[in-house]
Structures are given as C-alpha cells and as structure tokens.
Design a protein around this nucleic acid. Structure first.
Length: 770
DNA sequence: AATTAGGCATTTTTT
DNA sequence: ATGCCTAATT
C-alpha cells in the first residue's frame, strides 16, 4: 500500500486525527486511508491527550475490522492497545448485556438466536395462531419484526400502534415471539441492540456507568448503521459528547438490513456543532479505476458530491470479459488470473473474484479446481449451519440453558430415541398452558404437577420413559461440566447421546466427521476459561463471528467473495463477475421499481470497483444458469455507465491464439468437456469434497500438492493395511479412480464396517504388512 | 414412531 | 437440480 508514512499524514487526515473535542463527522472516500486515520486518532488520544485506553471505544462493522485495528494499534501503543474497547456493535452490546442484562431480568448466560432459530419460532407462532404461511410468508413477518426492533419499537408498542390488517397479523406473532424468546432466556440480533438501548435509557445507574466511562467513541462504516445503533451511540456519548463517526454515503449497501443512510446524512443536523472533514485523496487505485468508479457513482441522483482524486498512475484499461455461458465466463476469468500469476507481478493472495450472489461461487470453485488454482471461499453455505454442527451446538446450548426450546426441539429426538410428533405435541401443549419451557414440561409431567396445579397427560408409559431418559441424559452431561472442559464435553456429547451412530450411516459421514473435528478444535481456544464461561463465550462466538472474520490474508490463495462481504477490503487485482442485468443490478431491485434500490445496487458495484488497486476486470456471460436451465442475459446497464474509453472490450479472434500459446504453469489447455486430467498425480480434490470445506478454509490443489502427493500418499493397493485417524485400522479391498482422485474401499472392524474413502483427503497411514 | 414418496418453492445481499 | 415440508405407509 502506498500510504504516506505515519508521521506524514496529509493535511486533512491530520485534521481528522487531531479534531478531538466534540462530535466529528469524517466522510472518507474509498482508499482515502480511513483505517489509518482511525488508528492514528486512537493512538493520538492515548499518547498525546493521555486518555486512558479503556475509556475509548471503537465500533466497527465486522470483527475482522476490529481485530485488524487492534493489530495496527499494537506497535503504536503496546499493551495499551488491548484495553481499547473494539468490536462490532453486536459484540459490544452482548458484553454490556452479559454484565448488566439482569436489570432487565435477562439471564447472564443468555443464548443468541440466529436467523435459523428465529425462523423456527416465527413458524411455530404462526401455526399457533393459524396464520397461513402462503398468504403471509414467515420470512416477511420476521423481517417486519426485525425492522420494527431496529427502530426501537418493541412488541408492546408495535401492538399499540398497529394500523392495518397485516400489522395486526404481525403483532400477534410478534407478541408470542417475544414471549418465547423471554422464556428461552434468549435474544436475537436486534435484541442485543434494543435491550442495550433500553438499559442505557431506563436504568440510570447502569447508563451513567457507560456514559461516564466512554470519553471517546468512534464508529466506522457509519453509513451502514441502523437507527438503534445510532441511538446507542448517542446515549453513550451524551455526557462527554466525543462521538466521531466515519463513513461514506456512497458505500451504503445494507439498507435491506435496516441500515439507515440518514444517520450519516443528517449527522450534521443532529449535532449542529459537529466538525466535518472530507477525505478525497485516494491512495489505492489507478486513475483509470478511480475515474470509472467516479463516473459510475455520479449517476446516482440521491447523493452528496465528492471530488475524489489520486496521484497514482493511469494504469491499465478495464477489460470486459465476455463468455458465451457461465462456464466459459469462468474460464476466461481464470485464464486472466493465470496470466496475472505468470507475470509474477501478482501473487495468489493479490487476486479476488467478486460476485453478486453466493450461487455464482460454485462455478468458480469448480474452475479453480480444474486449473489447480488454490482458492479461499468466503461465506457460502455457512459452516455453523451444517446439520451436525447445529446439532452439537444445540446440545451445548441446552446444557447452558434448559429452557432453550429451539435447541430442545432440535435434539430431543436426534438420534431417534422414541420422542415423536405426538409426544412433542403433548409437551408443547403443556408448555403453552403453563407458559413454561418444553424441558420444564417434562418435569411437570414427571411430577404430575406444576406449581401445585395438576398436570394431566395422555402420554403412554413408553413416551414418559423416553422423556425422562432424555432429561437425565442432559442433567448428567451438565453435571460433568464441573470436571470436564468444553472439548471433553463435546466428546462426551458425541458418545453419550448416541450421536456417534449418525456418523456411520452414509457416504456423508466422512464429511461430517471432518466438520466435527474442526468444530472441536475451534473450541480449544476456550480451554483456559472456567467451563461455564467458556461455554457461554464459545456459543456467543458461534453466533456473532462470521466467515469473513476468520479469512486469511497472507495465505497463498485467491479469494472468492460476495460484493457485500468485500466492503472494507482491497486487492491489487479484482474481478467483478456476472455483470448482467438481473444479477447486478439484481432482478429484485429492478422489479421493485424503487429507484433507491437500483441506486443501492450501483453503490454495491461502486464498492466492488474501488476495492481494486492496480487491475480491475469485469466479466459477463451471454447466458446464465438458473434452476437447471439457462437463460439469455443482457449486459449490465452499469457497464455502459462507465466511459467507453476506460474499457477494453475483448478482441475477437486473437483470444484463441493466446490460449493455445499460453505456456502457463497454471493454465493447462484442456478440452471443454473432459475432466481436467485423468492422471492420478494431478490430485485435484474431488468436487464432492467442496461441501466439506466450505468455511473459509483453504483449499490447496496447486502444483505444490502435486509434488507432495506421492510422499504424503503412500502407494496404496488392494490388500494393504492402513490406519485411519477415526475409523482405526482396516484393509483395502478395492481401488478406483474418481474425478482424478483415488477412491479406496476399506474394510474396518465389524462395528465400522466397509467404508469408501478418498485417498487425497482420508489421510491414511500405510501399515507395514507383516 | 420411523421411513419414504411426492410436491413445492427456491436465489440477493448478513451482523 | 436440490432440499425442505407434508402426507402416506409400515
């Protein structure tokens, strides 16, 4: 990065760093050294102004940004850096609630419900109220509720102000939804903010603590904060009035998540004495890239003008790659990637491929595997959403909190232990009549009473026995928390609940096991803590930490990422793919007819473009795959909004020549339909391994792995004895080639039986045959 | 109670 | 095409 040296901030940056009395608004254009300004400002506060580090708060959009900030502060401040409160709004609020939640009657060990959990509850509530999910979609109702909460409207006030039939329906669900959350000692994402705000506002003593404590508060990505976040910030800084917000209205891309761009636009009105500093010098991109982005964003009517400029060189034109279908688009993009790598000007980690929707990633994943380009996929199907992971998490949540009905329902019959629909229905009936959790309902049934009221049930002795056994199971494991740490508890759950059995079922068992292993090892970070605390922290981490946060920067692979997640990142070379009307801008925004939605799509593209330092590529396809079929798609209207002179449209025939002549280490000319190569040494990971490694784990199938393979993979033949880290010892009874990998059929002991394993991932040790 | 078959909606972006 | 939900079957 070509930032000026620390001691050498530009005048405006310096002003931003040193303006420390009262409210400050920093409008920071892309690449204007925003992060630098924020860290320098904090360092300045601590070193020059002698502000105690723990009295400074810095709130960011992602945990990754927060961690980066802390890392950058470390050389400047040393140990003091660790005492700065830095995190996302959500994690910040979670810590306030862990400390002060009890004033609202919230248990300190509350659980955080994710999107999945929320949907389950919404659906239950709707069923309870006989609301037709065809007429009112659960998703829609949830988003209405979430919207209300982010405007600081709770279920009670919503109910009081409901104005039409739809709101009447929502209100019923909302009220019930809140009851269930309360009963479950759980909060959702919006509650973290809403409840924090309530405490700060209504509980004077607690509020004063935070108002007194935070002498300075800074907020990054302010254009993407919502009303409740802004309200919290105002609350906290109402005493010392040192609120510094940093953002760029042109990069506001989260309105669908209730972010309100008015926060930043009207900041100056809210604080009439606010200083405003606008950073317009761009240190990141070439003139060409910046000019293209500027012209594009100027097409938005609803915005505040900025005059971005750069001293950087003009740089290359922006190529527009055109493929005749999705696969061909991918091909062209990856060939360009290959050229960049061959030029030695770019490393793998310098290159990023961006797209509008996650579904587009698949094609690039497969492409990378074909070409042997190591890649890192951010997001996609979330690791923590995998079934086995959710199951295990549900068990852990139950240990902490018996009243978590969502988790209860999830695992009470997993693996099957004789608690079926009927039993569950009866439990839920009792839970409703007495307003107690499902788990408590078991107690009520077994005791035949609840708070002196007789509880009657029609359940047979078999069902009652099953329920009682389940209760004992959970209780027993819970009591082990005294002596066992979190990792041991996970192991205990797997063995004691009989969950292990599920691993022996199908060909997915391998994948499941690997996921569990990873889960288990991520729990190891918490071993130093008290067991209960560790459990709480681990579960909070699962809820609040995203894939993006754990993405690696240094490792040697290219990055595949959505445009939304790319916010705040930068790469020497960026490919923005799927430049088609319907994809970018997305069809939903076109169909909505709202100009504001189209403008947000434009901002999204703008964010993508401005991530690029030296090279920017656009790509599109003439056809796009939908649900099986493919349909013609027109070029994105945004392409024509970039001045033609900045673009480089692919020449016609010369392309194929270049392809043939390409003597690239990464580009191996292959025939269209054929799988890359049938040579076993190629060892590209098989496609079915994709799913197993979807978290931002690094996939390596570079030339490197080609060399490594013969050594790491002993020459395995039928009849060889091997050892597997999970299944134990076995004998190979067959070998076949699948997708340029070797599939081994191995007979293990009686209990495990016969397994099919892929040589490249099974990590087998060959045992000497006597 | 557990398993299976058939119908259906699904794809925007995520703390 | 796939995965989720409901209904029907054993």
């Amino acid at each position: 990065m070509s930032y000026p040296h620390h001691s050498n901030l530009n005048l405006l940056q310096k002003e931003a760093v040193e303006s420390i009395g009262g409210p400050v608004l920093i409008i920071a254009g892309p690449g204007s050294g925003k992060t630098r300004v924020i860290t320098s400002r904090i360092a300045h506060l601590v070193k020059e102004c002698e502000i105690a580090p723990h009295r400074i708060g810095a709130l960011t959009f992602t945990n990754k940004a927060a961690n980066e900030m802390k890392e950058r502060l470390l050389p400047l401040l040393g140990e003091d850096a660790k005492n700065i409160t830095a995190g996302t709004f959500h994690s910040f609020c979670a810590s306030i609630l862990r400390r002060d939640g009890p004033v609202l009657g919230l248990d300190r060990n509350f659980i955080i419900f994710d999107d999945d959990d929320q949907m389950k509850i919404i659906k239950d509530c709707m069923k309870e109220h006989n609301i037709d999910p065809k007429r009112f979609t659960p998703r829609g109702i949830l988003s209405t509720i979430s919207n209300a909460k982010s405007l600081l409207i709770d279920s009670k006030s919503y109910n009081e102000t409901k104005a039409d039939y739809y709101q009447e329906i929502v209100s019923r669900v909302f009220l019930r939804y809140e009851e269930i959350l309360n009963r479950s000692e759980a909060v959702d994402f919006d509650d973290l903010l809403l409840k924090t705000h309530t405490i700060l506002t209504n509980h004077h003593q607690v509020g004063e603590y935070y108002r007194e404590r935070f002498l300075h508060l800074m907020i990054d990505e302010f254009q993407d904060t919502n009303i409740s976040q802004y309200a919290i910030a105002k609350q906290i800084t109402s005493k010392h009035r040192n609120l510094c917000v940093v953002g760029d209205p042109d990069q506001s891309i989260y309105s669908w998540r209730n972010a309100d761009i008015r926060n930043i636009l009207s900041f100056n009105t809210d604080f009439s004495d606010a200083q405003t500093i606008t950073l317009e010098e761009n240190y990141r991109s070439t003139k060409t890239i910046l000019e293209g982005a500027k012209v594009l964003i100027s097409k938005n009517t609803d915005r505040v003008e900025k005059d971005l400029w750069t001293k950087n060189l003009g740089g290359n034109l922006i190529p527009v790659l055109e493929g005749f279908n999705e696969e061909n688009e991918t091909d062209k993009v990856l060939r360009e990637v290959g050229k960049l790598l061959d030029s030695k000007e770019f490393n793998l980690s310098d290159i990023c491929i961006m797209y509008r929707v996650n579904a587009q990633s698949r094609s690039f994943e497969m492409g990378c595997q074909r070409y042997g380009i190591p890649y890192q996929l951010i997001g996609g199907v979330k690791f923590y959403q995998r079934r086995e992971i959710k199951d295990l998490t549900a068990y852990l949540r139950l240990l902490l909190n018996y009243n978590d009905d969502v988790s209860f329902t999830r695992v009470v019959n997993v693996p099957p232990r004789g608690v079926g629909q009927r039993t569950l229905g009866e439990l839920s009936r009792i839970s409703r009549t007495h307003n107690i959790s499902l788990f408590q309902s078991i107690n009520a049934i077994l005791d035949s009473e609840y708070e002196d009221k007789i509880v009657e049930t029609q359940l047979g002795p078999r069902a009652i026995k099953s329920l009682s056994a389940f209760r004992d199971l959970i209780w027993n494991i819970k009591s082990l928390l005294q002596t066992q740490n979190i990792v041991e508890i996970i192991d205990t759950i797997i063995s004691e609940t009989g969950y292990r059995k599920l691993f022996h079922e199908d060909e997915k068992s391998e994948e499941r096991f690997e996921n569990i292993q990873e889960y288990r090892s991520s729990a190891e970070d918490y071993l130093h803590m008290d067991h209960i605390e560790a459990l709480t922290a681990f579960l909070e981490n699962i809820a609040l930490v995203s894939d993006l946060d754990s993405m690696s920067e240094s490792s040697e692979n290219i990055t595949l990422i959505t445009l939304h997640q790319a916010k705040g990142l930068e790469y020497p070379a960026v490919f923005i793919t799927g430049m088609e009307d319907g994809l970018l801008p997305h069809i939903k925004s076109i169909e909505s007819g709202e100009p504001s939605e189209l403008e947000e799509e434009r901002r999204l593209f703008y964010v993508g473009m401005t991530r690029a330092e030296k090279r920017l590529y656009l790509s599109r396809s003439f056809r796009r795959n939908f649900w099986g079929g493919s349909e013609p798609s027109a070029p994105s209207r945004f392409i024509s909004e970039i001045p033609r002179k900045l673009l480089q449209i692919t020449e016609k025939e010369s392309v194929s020549h270049k392809q043939d002549n390409a003597r690239s280490g990464y580009i191996k000319p292959t025939k269209k339909s054929a799988t890359p190569s049938s040579k076993k040494t190629e060892a590209a990971k098989p496609l079915n391994n994709l799913k197993a490694t979807s978290r931002s784990r690094v996939k390596r199938n570079s030339r490197k792995s080609k060399e490594l393979n013969p050594t790491s993979l002993p020459n395995l033949n039928t009849g060889d004895k091997i050892r597997h880290h999970i299944f134990g010892d076995g004998i190979i009874i067959n070998t076949t080639t699948v997708n340029s990998d070797i599939q081994l059929t191995v007979a293990f002991d009686k209990e495990t039986g016969i397994k099919k394993l892929l040589a490249s991932i099974a990590n087998l040790k060959k045992l000497p045959s006597k």
